[in-house]
Computed example of a mutant assay.
Amino acid sequence: MRFEFTPNAGFNFLNAFAEHIGAVVENDGIVIPDSLGQGIIKRMRLTPDFSLIIHHYILKEALILQRSASEDANEKINALFHIYQAPPDYHEKVAVDKTALADVKTVRITSTNIASEMFFPSEHEIFFINVSTSRTALQKLLNIKSMNAAASQILTDDKGFLFFERMNLNMQNCLKAIISVEFGNEMSGLVVWIRVQELLYLLFDSLLQRDTIKHFPINKVDASRLIAVKDNIVADLGKPPQLTELTKIADMSISKLTDLYRQVFGDSIYNYYQKARMEKAGDLIMRSGYSVSEAGYALGFSNLSHFSRLFSKHYGTTPKKYVNQINNSKFPAQT
């Protein structure tokens, strides 16, 4: 299922999506029809400058939300916090597959003059919120005195921008706390607003740790090409990325691609690939019961000592201890 929309003046996402799936908007929310899955979408006006759309559901069919670029919308910002979580037996349903979906935990913050596409797989629990605001309002809320290049481009520039950030455990817990709020409570709006501010703080706390010096304006063509490069990198985590192949996908020089990729994703292409492999390895061990060696070999590692070193660096514990923590139902924090 695909839903395409352009958020121009007067557009109402909730009403349009409800019509698309044959649902009814009640109390600023939608209940997903049983024929499509189960769950809800909720709209909230937090303040005059901040609004929120909450998605929490499990769908029978994959969903793609395709937002077209808005014209002359450099002042407007969307912060998209996104987790999709596979059911415990998900990887048992497929063969040992380096391309099978791992749990995804990402944040995308972008100006609305850059298009975005969100993919929600079937059978996965979706936790997703979209915080909409303006550069001016966000800068006033955060009140950052000393900005790095990333924060400055988001908060003070007048050009398009796009940044991705991995969600750490605190962000994941905060997102799930927002979604779990009981909305019938008279003070639920206040609780959600406090949590949203916490989530924005955690996001910018991560962004402020980036050390990229050179920053360039991002146009919608470059943005779509960089996302295509990222998708190619994670499509087969047993295959190291090849710069010559990626430059063809991006239609960029090596220097432009590597600079823009680090700017947008906060890491080099190869480091991003390695971290994605570790996340997939943890997912295979935690959810599928793979042994450490099975997970390593499935992801293309021939040297298990090298795999163990990378795993320990990513998770802060050895693979063996990670397995023991899982067996004892004590899950380690993920970076």
Rank of each mutant, 00 (worst) to 15 (best):
K76R: 10
L52W: 03
Y272I: 02
A100K: 09
A62N: 13
S51M: 04
F119Y: 12
G266P: 10
V196M: 04
M44D: 09
A295M: 07
F127P: 07
S305G: 12
L63M: 14
S302L: 09
V25D: 06
L162I: 02
D267W: 02
L175A: 14
L207E: 05
A100Q: 11
I218F: 03
S305P: 00
Y322D: 10
Q172P: 02
A86K: 13
E75L: 13
V234R: 09
L304V: 06
Y290R: 06
F3T: 05
P48W: 00
I154A: 08
I194V: 11
A149E: 01
P7W: 07
N74K: 08
W193S: 15
Q172R: 14
V107Y: 09
V221F: 15
A281G: 04
I285A: 07
F307T: 03
N113A: 10
N78M: 08
I285T: 10
I326P: 08
K248Y: 15
M286N: 07
K105N: 14
F164G: 01
Y315R: 00
A150V: 13
A149M: 01
F11Q: 06
A18D: 03
N130K: 12
A177I: 05
M118Y: 06
I249D: 05
R43P: 00
P240T: 04
Q263F: 04
Q325P: 03
E75A: 15
S312M: 06
Y290N: 06
N74Y: 07
I285N: 08
S268F: 04
D28G: 02
K230V: 04
M167W: 12
L80I: 15
S70W: 00
F13E: 03
E279Y: 05
R287Q: 15
K76Y: 12
Q139P: 00
E92H: 14
I54P: 02
Y322N: 10
H91V: 02
K145W: 00
L310Q: 15
N130M: 11
F301S: 04
P48N: 05
G238R: 02
L190G: 06
D49V: 01
I326E: 09
K105I: 07
E4S: 09
H55V: 00
A16G: 00
K248E: 15
S291D: 11
I144E: 03
F120Q: 08
Y270L: 14
L208C: 02
I21R: 10
N328G: 04
Y315E: 00
I54K: 12
K321S: 05
E71I: 10
N324K: 13
H314Q: 03
H314S: 02
V196R: 05
A235M: 06
V323A: 05
F13H: 02
F265L: 07
R135E: 01
Q172V: 14
G29M: 12
K76D: 11
I126V: 15
A16V: 01
D97E: 10
F127A: 14
L246V: 03
I126R: 07
S308K: 08
E61T: 11
G22R: 10
L162G: 01
A23V: 07
R195W: 08
T156K: 11
S134R: 04
S224T: 12
G22N: 10
S268D: 06
Q153T: 13
V292D: 08
Y297R: 14
A100L: 11
T133H: 03
I64G: 04
S68C: 00
G266K: 08
V192H: 03
S288Q: 09
P33C: 10
K248P: 12
A150T: 12
M44G: 01
G238D: 06
N170S: 13
S308V: 03
F119Q: 03
V234F: 06
N328C: 05
